[in-house]
Design a protein around this nucleic acid. Structure first.
Lengths: 221, 221
DNA sequence: TTGAAAAACGACATCAGTGTCGTTTGTAAT
DNA sequence: ATTACAAACGACACTGATGTCGTTTTTCAA
């Protein structure tokens, strides 16, 4: 008797299925993907895959959890423990630029599809709400820290600014996804966001050694 | 020989099917809706409905065109021919507030679903791009008019501001749709947008007889 | 080497939705 | 009233995806 394969081997198989699934989801989004697509990508058999994941949705949740774990940590770390307040914002914006620029090569389109066609589904909503509150919370905490240090003198409540920024970034992501990056010119828009933050936080014009590279979009005519 | 029913009757039937379809799309979104649902809602027969619309997608496009015609006109008119520049912005914001507040009772969720699950579809993209460019264009034109009159002294190019505003509004709509209006507090966020515009356009503090009701969100602490 | 049990396989039954098409019904001109 | 034709009907065949389950293969302990 006794088990016939090691626990590790099972875990590897599980991961291999998830890897294959991610590949397919990146290529085809969410709705258009069938279990058969994923099965084909793995090279395994129908029964084999079903032994690990009972449905496309179950598989997708596994991917979401995986992503979320790795992501949330990095995101929070980005905003914690900074040296120079404004520099952190620049850093944050550069990070967002990279993320958004990479949208269509990532799982984002599939994730977006998953939640937008499932927004009535009571099971899916909490995930998004959690993500949103976490993002807003992290950013607001960062702002409050900056206020305490005297780096920022915000014209609004940090919470309000944070919500505003997250909403804007959500919108920008959606627009890039649905319209393409050329149409909505996300780099210029991130410059606008930089300018907005610069103003609403009342940053002194000469922030450390950072020059005047804020406005690629043009000054007042 | 000669036709057996009047042209008008056929048009009415067409409209009735569209009305029924809109009802179903409002209730169930896009993907979850089947032709059968629509057929049931009309009270007609399968063949009857198919005689007018060959597929769910064809039907949805008909609805989109219908909406778009009525919408685009009103939107442009809102921003044209204003008396007081800032007042027009207030008006615009109030309009957006109403729109966003009504999101889940409108076709928006279905439209959103339609485009987000079909963003790879080359046929669907042009529609959204047109909508976006029109919105940005209208808003930018309004801003330029205000500049010419001396009402606005923008810190950025009007185009950039317009894009920023539209992206933000897109984000806000998405967030309201996916997270619910309580979570993302869209009224407060529209106040933030008002404050942003007030600053970026360098509106004098005392604009005509309008008092200081801009910031429900709180002043600098 | 053998054999027992788990893992992997893939054919199959099922299901939901689609679009068609032969039939029935209704209308208006004669 | 009759009739001829379009409109409306709804049963049906088809499709594509799903999840199951009896069979085969693999693995490891004895």
């Amino acid at each position: 008797m006794s088990p016939k394969v090691t626990e590790e081997h099972k875990e590897n198989r599980r991961l291999e299925i998830m890897r294959a699934a991610a590949e397919v989801f990146k290529r085809k989004g969410y709705d258009a993907v069938t279990m058969q697509d994923i099965i084909d990508e793995t090279g395994m058999s129908r029964g084999g895959v079903y032994a690990y994941f009972g449905s496309k949705e179950e598989l997708f949740w596994a991917l979401l959890d995986q992503i979320d774990d790795s992501h949330a940590a990095g995101y929070a770390k980005l905003l914690d423990r900074y040296r120079n307040a404004w520099e952190t914002i620049e850093h944050f914006l550069r990070y967002q630029e990279k993320e958004i620029g990479n949208t269509h090569r990532s799982l984002s389109p599939a994730i977006f599809e998953f939640f937008s066609s499932g927004w009535r589904d009571a099971d899916r909503q909490p995930f998004l709400v959690g993500r949103y509150k976490r993002a807003v919370g992290d950013f607001a905490r960062f702002l409050r820290a900056g206020v305490k240090r005297g780096d920022f003198r915000p014209l609004q409540e940090p919470e309000a600014i944070a919500q505003f920024v997250i909403s804007f970034l959500d919108g920008l992501s959606v627009d890039v996804l649905l319209l393409g990056s050329e149409v909505c010119d996300y780099r210029a828009q991130l410059d606008s966001l930089r300018l907005y933050l610069h103003q609403v936080l009342q940053i002194a014009e000469t922030s450390r050694e950072d020059g005047g590279s804020q406005s690629t979009t043009g000054e007042t005519p």
